[in-house]
Structures are given as structure tokens and as C-alpha cells.
């Protein structure tokens, strides 16, 4: 509906702050955990750290930028599907 204006009266911090806070602490603890285990060199952890850097951008669009940073940047189809699942970050 082109003419529709999304609601603006709700306090979104009231609704979402505790959930976001909890997820951030979980993320911090995850980084601590892999570091203590000497596993921070894993390409997925490295990809996560690069993505965290994108959160400090000023413009809205952080979710999009984070998703882009985890994405395969190539454009040609691969010769054969080597596996059926996906990993979440691009292997080096």
C-alpha cells in the first residue's frame, strides 16, 4: 500500500532493547570463548569480526551491509554443487 505510513508512535527501545542487549552480550561471550580456545583464526569468526565493524556506520542499512559482507561475491554459476548445505560465510 503505497499510501500507507508505518506506525511511528511505538517506543521501539521499550520493545527491543533487552533483546538486543542480550544478543550483544552473547556475541561478546562467543568471541571471548573462541579466543580462549585459540580458534579465532577460523574464517567464520573472522567474517563475524569484519561484519561487527559495519555496525558503526551512520546510515540505516546495517542489516543489509552485514548480509552483504557474508555473501559470495562471485557471479558465475559453479561447475557442480559440492555440498547441499551452506556455511554462513564465504570460505577463503
Amino acid at each position: 500500500m503505497k499510501s500507507w505510513t508505518p506506525p511511528q508512535s511505538v517506543n521501539l527501545a521499550d520493545l527491543g532493547f533487552m533483546d538486543a542487549r542480550s544478543k550483544l552480550i552473547d556475541l561478546a561471550a562467543f568471541l571471548d570463548r573462541v579466543q580462549r580456545a585459540g580458534q579465532e583464526g577460523d574464517f567464520r569468526v573472522q567474517a563475524l569480526k569484519r561484519a561487527i565493524g559495519l555496525l558503526s556506520q551512520e546510515a540505516p542499512g546495517r542489516a543489509r551491509e552485514v548480509l552483504l559482507s557474508f555473501s559470495d561475491p562471485s557471479s558465475e554459476p559453479v561447475a557442480k554443487a559440492a555440498m547441499q548445505g551452506a556455511i554462513g560465510a564465504c570460505p577463503p
Partner: peptide, 12 residues
């Protein structure tokens, strides 16, 4: 496609 494959797959 899922996860890292979604962007490329959507374009294709």
C-alpha cells in the same frame, strides 16, 4: 539459496 549463496543465487 541459503546464507552466503543467497545474493548470487537471487541475481542469477
Amino acid at each position: 539459496p541459503h546464507l552466503e549463496d543467497k545474493l548470487k543465487g537471487t541475481r542469477l
